[in-house]
């Protein structure tokens, strides 16, 4: 738990507490961080009791608390009033409809997976008696060669492009989304920019 902090101020910064009619000395006021933690119940019970006692006599700190609580009320009220019971019911129906579709797809997929598995077994049998049974080192060499060839090709393409990469990066921000395609594995957003007509952003779910 965090220790409470009192604000140190000039002793002449006292003001009259309107409720109790007593002088409230701001020297004993708590900082806003402590009040924030107090509202969240994240200070010790003893400290919390001290803050409560202080709030009984200090309109300044009480106003801070009231403000903080009004923010919570506003957010909860804003969220609550943006949905009607009907929306929630429609959402539930949508979720269950999608669930049923996925469940059906899952059942279909199981059948396909079983077929694939049996096919793979036969391929495995074939591979074990063919060139696929070559040592792993050959496979690694082939993969490395493929990566090198692809890298060389890609680098050549980049150097051939007339516009340098920097100018592409420096283009102005996009002005509209042309389309967005959401897939199971990855998604694509096509944005319209001022200088080039389209910019494609590809996104892969992690």
């Amino acid at each position: 738990m965090k220790e409470t902090n009192r604000i140190k101020k000039d002793s002449n910064e006292s003001l009259l507490c309107t409720d109790s009619g007593t002088l409230c000395n701001q020297e004993s006021c708590y900082d806003t961080m402590t009040i924030s933690s107090f509202i969240d119940g994240e200070i010790s019970p003893e400290e919390s009791e001290e803050v409560k006692n202080h709030l009984d006599n200090c309109p300044v700190c009480r106003q801070v608390v009231d403000h903080y609580l009004s923010f919570e009320k506003a957010l909860n009220s804003g969220i609550a009033s943006s949905f009607k019971d009907q929306d929630v019911k429609i959402l539930q129906n949508r979720i269950m409809a999608t669930h049923d579709l996925y469940a059906k797809k899952g059942a279909d997929l199981n059948g396909i997976q079983n077929k694939i598995r049996s096919k793979l077994h036969s391929i495995k049998d074939f591979a074990s008696s063919s060139i696929f049974s070559l040592p792993k080192i050959y496979l690694q060499i082939a993969s490395l060669a493929a990566i090198i060839i692809l890298s060389i090709t890609a680098l050549r393409d980049i150097t051939d492009v007339n516009a340098p990469m920097q100018s592409v990066m420096a283009q102005s921000s996009p002005s509209a989304i042309v389309t967005s395609v959401n897939g199971d594995i990855s998604s694509v957003i096509i944005l319209e920019t001022e200088d080039t007509h389209h910019t494609i952003i590809w996104y892969q779910e992690v």
Binding site: L75, A80, S82, F83, L91, Q92, I95, M96, H99, D100
Partner: peptide, 24 residues
């Protein structure tokens, strides 16, 4: 186990709260 009723129960139980978080 893939029980549909259980899933529906889950949706009913938690959709309000999740909706509030997402909306916030």
């Amino acid at each position: 186990k893939g029980n549909r009723l259980a899933f529906e129960h889950l949706v009913k139980r938690y959709q309000h709260r999740l909706l509030s978080i997402a909306c916030g």
